[in-house]
């Protein structure tokens, strides 16, 4: 593979990429890796969302990238500032797994599915279509989004690599 410019997105972090750079985030468990893409301008954005809603936030320095309801608007702003158009944006997402099958599930342990639900709801609010997703299950994922092709590569231990 050609050495591409790699932009790493950490946990509870977000970033954008242009000029064929690749966005990457590793070890998604119950977190959701959400990508937005403007195919005309070839501007890509990725957020590693950890929690569904900022309602529960008690932190002193607020991290927008952590919560689905604040990460998506923040990512949108960054992408629009870089020249992307909201109407052209398409979303893809991966993650939201339930890593451990626990007996006596409480709601807080269903965090993966709740992250996916929350991301979907926020995207609907902005009328951004979700064109592909690989969510749920009980396995971890590492994802890479190619800003030149608009493809999302998903790697997992059990299932190898696939592109959506």
């Amino acid at each position: 593979m050609i050495q591409q410019n790699l932009v790493k997105v950490g946990m509870a972090d977000l970033n954008i990429a242009t000029d064929g750079a690749v966005l990457k985030t590793t070890g998604l468990g119950s977190c959701v890796g959400l990508t937005l893409y403007d195919p005309i301008k070839k501007i890509a954005g990725m957020a590693h969302v950890m929690l569904p809603s900022s309602d529960i936030a008690r932190e002193t320095t607020f991290n927008f990238a952590k919560y689905a309801d604040t990460a998506i608007p923040e990512l949108l702003d960054r992408m629009i500032a870089a020249g992307a158009h909201v109407v052209r944006l398409k979303a893809k997402m991966a993650g939201g797994a339930q890593m451990f099958a626990m007996s006596g599930q409480t709601d807080s342990l269903r965090i993966g599915p709740r992250n996916v639900e929350s991301c979907t709801a926020v995207l609907n609010r902005f009328k951004i279509p979700i064109v592909a997703q690989d969510t749920g299950g009980s396995f971890g994922r590492t994802i890479e989004f190619d800003s030149a092709k608009g493809m999302l590569a998903i790697r997992s231990v059990q299932f190898g690599t696939k592109e959506i």
Partner: peptide, 23 residues
């Protein structure tokens, strides 16, 4: 409960209670 998977994916599960407080 047991999982055989990427360290990042399994460990993040135990960090959720901290998520609402900081990074």
């Amino acid at each position: 409960a047991i999982a055989v998977d990427m360290a990042g994916a399994v460990l993040s599960y135990g960090l959720m209670q901290y998520g609402e407080m900081g990074d």
